[in-house]
């Protein structure tokens, strides 16, 4: 069975702007795959290339082995898309909107009606079936987008920031629903700004920035790439950090002192802490307390996109920005809020 999504050197240019830059990505069938990145990273462009709303400039894109341009009918038939924007037919009650969408996918009218009712119940807005889209609340509109994506019973469900601006209850409902769908075998591609969402739901995530793939990994792998901070409180104030460093091994990547605290950055706080404590005691310090702060996926995300920005900056901009890295970091942080 071919992968659910396979792109090779995918490029999309808008004049001088390169929205996708040689993006190669594979999402296996049955995966729950997350796409993370700041605004303008190219996530929506990538999705729209798969469904035919954006025409690629170069490279290849396949959905379950079908080329998205030369075999567009098969590729589109496999996809259910819940987009970011509310792009729903305003002329008809929502039940009919769903029936039309099912019809476009070749589902006969009787069955389309059954499916429309079924998905409306599944997302919890069956009692609104005769309302028009404009009369639904924001949360209901979001649910309808999901219902519309599901009504064709897609093998690949694409959710473009499905929980943006929704309340906590709905967010949890949506999480439960998509988890069930994935358990039933539907491949899911999710883009999100919420790191917690990706961490909670996704088997693997790709981090994108400025149209490039920064990395692909499981959320756990990503977290392991980050550094932890071990904060040790000593019974008496330690000497300056520079004086402490020789007593500690190369595992200590960064040492700072503050009052009676020593903060040490290490790769894996859990396994390094005992050794750190031993080294501190061997150097004559008495331990009072210990706290390990694990790196959040969010910090890693910011770090990775900032590194990527620095790489880009290095090749195109001044040395000053390269040295400090402040500007790119700020951009990346703004992007994920």
């Amino acid at each position: 069975m071919p992968p659910a999504i396979e792109t090779t050197d995918l490029v999309k240019e808008y004049g001088d702007l390169r929205a996708l830059q040689e993006l190669s990505l594979t999402v296996e069938e049955g995966e729950f795959f997350g796409l993370l990145g700041p605004n303008g990273a190219g996530k929506t462009t990538f999705i729209n290339t798969l469904v035919g709303l954006v025409r690629k400039t170069g490279g290849e894109a396949r959905v379950f082995g079908y080329d998205v341009e030369s075999e567009y009918r098969q590729a589109r038939d496999a996809i259910g898309l819940a987009p970011q924007e509310f792009n729903v037919d305003r002329f008809f009650p929502v039940r009919e909107v769903l029936m039309h969408k099912a019809g476009y996918h070749g589902i006969p009218e009787d069955e389309a009606a059954e499916r429309a009712d079924e998905v409306l119940k599944r997302v919890g807005i069956y009692d609104k079936r005769n309302e028009r889209f404009d009369w639904l609340s924001g949360g209901m509109k979001r649910r309808l987008l999901l219902a519309r994506a599901l009504v064709t019973d897609p093998d690949l469900l694409i959710l473009d920031e499905p929980t943006a601006g929704v309340d906590v209850q709905l967010r949890h409902d949506l999480w439960d629903l998509v988890t069930d769908l994935n358990d039933e075998g539907t491949t899911i591609l999710l883009t999100t700004h919420y790191i917690e969402e990706a961490e909670r739901l996704c088997d693997r995530v790709a981090i994108m920035n400025e149209g490039r793939k920064v990395t692909v990994a499981t959320p756990d792998d990503l977290k392991r790439r980050g550094s932890d901070t071990v904060d040790v409180r000593l019974e008496s104030a330690p000497p300056a950090a520079g004086a402490l460093e020789p007593a500690l091994g190369p595992y200590a990547r960064d040492v700072t002192t503050r009052g009676d605290h020593v903060e040490v950055r290490v790769d894996d706080g859990g396994s390094t802490a005992p050794r750190l404590l031993n080294d501190l005691e061997a150097a004559g310090h008495e331990i009072a307390d210990l706290e390990i702060s694990r790196t959040s996926l969010e910090e890693i995300f910011v770090d990775l996109t900032a590194q990527e920005d620095r790489t880009v900056t290095r090749s195109s901009a001044s040395e000053d920005a390269d040295e400090t890295g402040e500007e790119p970091t700020k951009r990346a942080q703004e992007g994920v809020v």
């Binding site: 469904v51 009918r73 589109r76 729903v88 037919d89 039309h100 969408k101 476009y104 070749g106």
Partner: peptide
């Protein structure tokens, strides 16, 4: 204008 033509465009119609 309202982008709901996407419902048609993302479907497998020729």
């Amino acid at each position: 204008w309202n982008e709901y033509i996407h419902e048609t465009l993302t479907s497998p119609l020729s």
